[in-house]
Nucleic acid binder design. Structure first.
Lengths: 216, 216
DNA sequence: ATTATCTATAGATCTATAGATAATGC
DNA sequence: ATTATCTATAGATCTATAGATAATGC
């Protein structure tokens, strides 16, 4: 009976409510306040408490979804911005360096990321699978020399978190310079010669300003 | 009027209750369950709810103390075990390699550590100040070449956490080998030549079995 | 006599839902 | 007519304390 209907006003209204909840959850995540009553979440989202249960079974589920969507958004952005880079070592480095700049550019998203900690590496979506893929491709292409892929992934995640943590703790620190320094150190850990690592980490990055206007 | 009395039975009973609470909190921390009713904590500690408030004002305070005491215990152990090492690079590496082995040897304590995440680096006690001191001493002695002490500290903490996270996720992974591999990578990051880093990370470690019988 | 602990519970807070209202579809 | 949202609230849960009991000191 193929009842394919174009999404109508009802669906859009429903989607708006859901988005309001996820947005509110992301704002709370950014403040590290996940231990709040559902009523506070719905007030922040400016909807009635009752509507909460039309969309999520519990606070935990909402926060899980909120984290997932936030990181998936950034991950897919990194995909698009590195899609036409041939050298997988460069693609990896560009993603890392841009994610380093994320901490200042989108502090709320950065805090969502930091709040995840190393749980990050166990997610099926978001940044981890992409980083893992980048590293594997670079190893297969003979660009990285890494005998332990899992260790490499978790060290990468740790570097992202360490960098973000430091940038928030020290508001005056230069994010670009620190990010590139850490990226260089990671590339060297993955077997690239020092000068090659330095070269890669001083390449131009895509203009994130342009991107924000397209998708953010 | 100088009422110095030897701690009597009352004080010991009081201390026992407090310790029971802190122990219970550490067990809960190890399971990541800090969001439990106070009643559950006191039942786990096998004391009445009322007694809780004789010792702590809130759950949060109890958990803070529980983390602090756990990490301070391990930190002071590392101090003692590296006290008579002359080369600060070696002292740093020994502490790091032993802490890597902590994840298998004391999984509960390890989970307390992992639960802290990079907050770790902002604590006035525990591992961070010791690691910072080690790194600074090594830099001053010309053993490490590190231009950014804060970055070095946070990368060290991240490496500890990454290693622990991986060891828990992969129970079959060789903890000693992984720890030494990461330690070597850190030493190289801090400017030591590859062969020197490898040598340091294959030195004998103090016998932790003996120590456990003395203090644990 | 003093101090810590225990039991029992008042009052605060939170979750989840029932039933009413509003928006859209047909 | 249908579906989403809203308001109001019953019932569950949790915190923090009052008052009773038990342990120790003198």
């Amino acid at each position: 009976m193929g009842e394919r209907t174009a999404p109508g006003r009802v669906d859009r209204r429903r989607a708006r409510t859901r988005t309001a909840l996820v947005d509110a959850a992301q704002r709370l995540l950014a403040e590290g306040r996940t231990d709040v009553p559902i009523l506070e979440i719905t007030e922040l989202a400016d909807i009635g408490v009752g509507s909460f249960y039309n969309h999520f079974d519990s606070k935990e589920e909402l926060f899980r979804v909120a984290v997932e969507e936030a990181l998936e958004w950034w991950g897919s952005l990194m995909d698009r911005l590195t899609a036409d880079i041939d050298d997988p070592a460069v693609a990896f480095a560009q993603s890392f360096r841009m994610t380093g700049r994320l901490h200042r550019r989108h502090p709320e998203l950065s805090r969502v990321l930091l709040g995840q900690g190393l749980e990050l590496t166990r997610s099926e979506s978001g940044l981890a699978p992409r980083a893992f893929q980048d590293i594997r491709t670079a190893v297969d292409a003979g660009r990285f020399e890494v005998e332990d892929l899992d260790l490499a992934l978790v060290m990468t995640a740790a570097a992202v978190l360490a960098l973000g943590s430091l940038l928030h703790a020290q508001p005056d620190r230069d994010d670009a310079q620190s990010a590139d320094l850490v990226a260089r150190s990671l590339l060297r850990q993955f077997g690239l010669p020092a000068d090659e690592a330095a070269r890669i980490c001083s390449l131009d990055l895509p203009d994130l300003d342009l991107v924000d206007t397209l998708v953010g």
